[in-house]
Each structure stands twice: as structure tokens, then as C-alpha cells.
């Protein structure tokens, strides 16, 4: 019973490092921030120390949660709407040669447009309620969903289409049983881009005209020179953005064994 082999650590060590090293990096940055502020003698109104930000989070956690919830709802709803409208639209575009030729180049072109610039107009059209915010979140999230889905539907591997041809599949079957599932990796990678943009859109919406949400809180804190609170709002936004992204990425990861990974574009 002696000389038992030591448990192999070869497998778990790199995994642990994958988590530990970024954490270490983060702590180093916090330390640099802390000591940098002290060394430069910056007043808290310009740049508060990390501990002051932590203090603000502690004091205002309920407020942060409430405002965060508002932003979360606007982001998620904008993303959801983008998906609900974007996917069928991409299907229509990819499914019709005419629409395809008319709109696909335009869609590609819109990718480089600064869509958030429409935010002030949304305010004029829809007012300062959740509608304008949602509209902006929807607008920025919509395009990556449509473009990616349409691209995925257009680039079905030729062998799959040969298989459809030799089995004499009709257009409906080709779409449901081949094209759409084959486009899934593109749809999912579009979703990952879209969710990030939806949060940005919601915050822009709150910047230009809203009386709630983390974006609004950020503006208010700024105008009161309550910089620690502004930073606390930023932390809230970071948590929100990362959380939503992680949720979508988790769905993508869970579906990857079925549909594979989208090729880099």
C-alpha cells in the first residue's frame, strides 16, 4: 500500500492558471491604480481610489441594483427584439435572390455606420421613456444579427447542397433541414456581437434622454462631481455587460457540439 502514485496535476494546473493569471493581472491593475492615485496626489473628484469606489458601491448598492435593472431590461429587450425581427428578415433576404441583391450590399455597408448617432432622433420620435432607449439598443443590435444570419444562410457548404440535391429535397426542406441549421454558428456569433452592442445602445439612450438607468446615474453623478458614484455606475455597467455576454456565450458554447463554430469573418 505504499508508493501510491501522486494524483496527476498535469491536467488541472493549466486550467487553474487560466483563472489565476487574469485575476492576478486584475489585482495588479487595481494596485497600480491605488498607488498611482496616491503618488500623483489626485483628488477623489478627479480619480477616486479603488477603495473609494468600493465604498460608493457599498453605500449605493440598492440604487445601483434598481438602475442596473432598468438598463438590463432595455438591453435584453433590445437584443431580443433585434433577434426576433432580424432573423426572419435575414431569412427573407437570403431566401429571395431579388431581395438578396437589393439589400445584402446595403446591409454590409451599414456595418460601418455609426448607428448610435441616430439616438437624438429616437428621442424626438419616441420621447424620453423606455421606448427610445429600447429603440437604440434594438437598432445597434439588429444589424449584426441580420448580417451574420444572412451571411450564414448564403454560405451553406456546397456539399450539403449536393446532398440536398441528390436526395431531391424541396426548397422548404433545404431551408429547414440544411440551410438554417448550417447557419446557426453564424447566428450565434452574431448574437454575441449583438448583446454587447445592445448594452452600449441602451446606455447611449440613457445618456441622451432618460431619467433612469445606469447611464443616467452616471450622468447625474458626474454633474454632482460625485466621481466615486460615477465609477460605481461604471462597475455596474461592466458587470451587466459581461454578464449578458457570458449568458449568450454560454448558449453558444452549449450548442457548439451540434452546430460547430462559425469561421472567422
Amino acid at each position: 500500500m505504499n508508493a501510491r502514485p501522486a494524483p496527476r496535476s498535469g491536467w488541472c494546473m493549466p486550467k487553474a492558471l487560466d483563472i489565476l493569471l487574469p485575476l492576478l493581472g486584475f489585482c495588479l491593475l487595481l494596485a497600480a491604480w491605488h498607488f498611482g492615485v496616491g503618488w500623483a496626489g489626485l483628488p477623489p473628484a478627479v480619480l477616486p481610489k479603488p477603495l473609494a469606489v468600493w465604498g460608493a458601491i457599498n453605500t449605493h448598492w440598492l440604487l445601483l441594483l434598481e438602475e442596473g435593472w432598468v438598463t438590463l431590461v432595455a438591453s435584453a429587450a433590445g437584443f431580443g427584439l433585434a433577434f426576433l425581427i432580424g432573423v426572419p428578415m435575414a431569412v427573407a433576404i437570403a431566401g429571395s435572390p431579388l431581395l438578396n441583391r437589393m439589400f445584402y450590399p446595403l446591409l454590409i455597408a451599414t456595418q460601418s455606420l455609426p448607428k448610435v448617432a441616430l439616438a437624438p432622433l429616437m428621442l424626438v420620435w419616441l420621447g424620453t421613456g423606455i421606448e427610445s432607449k429600447l429603440a437604440i439598443a434594438w437598432l445597434v443590435a439588429f444589424f449584426p444579427v441580420v448580417v451574420n444570419t444572412a451571411t450564414g444562410l448564403r454560405t451553406t457548404p456546397r456539399e450539403y447542397l449536393d446532398l440536398a440535391a441528390v436526395t431531391r429535397a424541396n426548397g422548404w426542406q433545404i431551408f429547414w433541414k440544411i440551410r438554417l441549421p448550417a447557419a446557426m454558428p453564424f447566428v450565434l456569433s452574431g448574437a454575441k456581437v449583438a448583446i454587447t452592442l445592445a448594452v452600449i445602445g441602451a446606455v447611449i439612450g440613457e445618456f441622451v434622454g432618460s431619467s433612469e438607468g445606469l447611464g443616467h446615474l452616471l450622468l447625474v453623478a458626474n454633474s454632482q462631481v460625485n466621481t466615486p458614484l460615477a465609477f460605481a455606475a461604471l462597475v455596474g455597467l461592466a458587470v451587466l455587460g459581461i454578464g449578458l455576454y457570458a449568458a449568450v456565450a454560454a448558449v453558444e458554447l452549449a450548442l457548439r457540439p451540434w452546430f460547430g463554430e462559425a469561421p472567422p469573418q
Binding site: 456539399e159 450539403y160 449536393d162 446532398l163 448550417a182 446557426m184 452546430f259 460547430g260
Partner: peptide, 14 residues
């Protein structure tokens, strides 16, 4: 009533 075997297995991954 024809069958076709492709150069690649060409299986649908899903």
C-alpha cells in the same frame, strides 16, 4: 432510386 456517396463523409453535424 440513386444513392450517392461523397468524397467527404458530408454528415450533418447537428
Amino acid at each position: 432510386d440513386f444513392g450517392f456517396a461523397f468524397q467527404s463523409p458530408n454528415l450533418l453535424p447537428w
